[in-house]
Design a protein around this nucleic acid. Sequence first.
DNA 1: CCACAATCTGACCAACCGGTCAAGAATTTT
DNA 2: AAAATTCTTGACCGGTTGGTCAGATTGTGG
Lengths: 205, 205
Amino acid sequence: MNRPEGAARRSRIQQRNRKRILEAALDIFSQYGFRGATLDQIAEAAGLSKPNILYYFSGKEAIHVTLLNDLMDAWLAPMREIDPAGEPLEEILRYVHRKLEMSREFPRESRLFANEILQGAPRIGPHLTSVLKPLVDETAALIGRWIDAGRLARVDPYHLIFSIWATTQHYADFDAQVQVLAEGHDVHEGAAAYLDMLYRQLLTP
Amino acid sequence: MNRPEGAARRSRIQQRNRKRILEAALDIFSQYGFRGATLDQIAEAAGLSKPNILYYFSGKEAIHVTLLNDLMDAWLAPMREIDPAGEPLEEILRYVHRKLEMSREFPRESRLFANEILQGAPRIGPHLTSVLKPLVDETAALIGRWIDAGRLARVDPYHLIFSIWATTQHYADFDAQVQVLAEGHDVHEGAAAYLDMLYRQLLTP
DNA sequence: CCACAATCTGACCAACCGGTCAAGAATTTT
DNA sequence: AAAATTCTTGACCGGTTGGTCAGATTGTGG
């Protein structure tokens, strides 16, 4: 009697169906938000019956929390890859470009997070404190050292990080607006060039 | 037999109660999104009974649309106030500061819009095309002329506008995250100084 | 091929949701 | 103060939602 819920070993069927469910749930949750999404929608998108979905997850909220936790790591990977031994300006610009790339490749993940934060992070709040904050503090300290060494212009590291997040994720989260206003132009190519210039101008000592 | 729904003259009671309802609805919608909000929540927040709310508005969607339309004007006012005859850099920086100020003073309005756009602008899409787009096109053209006259550095006006929106509204929309990471610091004062430097560095010819 | 566990589903349920309605209470008009 | 109109509400309704459960079906190890 295995519980699919726990983190124990999973059979091939469990692996396959859990993946299906999470994939479908990402679609639905990112599009309609937590309360706007329904289990029936997720079930249909996953090609499973609703009771079957509740065989693999204890409830709607468990699916949502699992999604957010699983995604958090991938979402923070670019920041973890900033190399303290690298050339500061190039490291920051590489980070900006990777974040912009993720906005294009994983817009659903971006919107899922945005939805959660917008509503006050009711289900991922603790994770922010325990996982996100230490990483950001560490990165901010690194940037601070780079600035003190005269290798970057003097800016507030935290606001720098906020503005990088804001400017890159904007293209995923506010895509509906961007599409109306850009109207056909190659948005991402232009964004890459613009953001490169923006942060190069700001950070060049 | 007046219909409170129409744009006709409104009695004092109608004015007061419509205002109460919209105020309460702004609270609830901005916190939970459209589908996440319930008429019962709005009714309780407004101190009115549910049927009474439906006496003033034809339905949940009508309240939401009214909110969005009423807010759109106030939201775009700072962009309308950019003075074509002013000093370009100062005009842009003033716009940035006004937008940041609105993020602090009207975070609920910011989140209401963010929620709507995140979900694909299903209820305000036409408004984006008919109201927002012409204004943005006009402003972008103005910035383009300033650039051609050598009074601003050469940047893509549309991406400049996107980045101003992203960086300023971030402090309202992602407040839950910012609060965790900033932890006590005076966020808005720091943001104002940072954004001033950011756009000054970028735009100075 | 058999026994046992794992997987799956139709039928069902209580709670909630947006919205209606008839009738009562309050206000304004005459 | 009577009549007419506006405002308010308790009771109710059909549909949806998250979740349950008994039992059927499928997969698996011996």
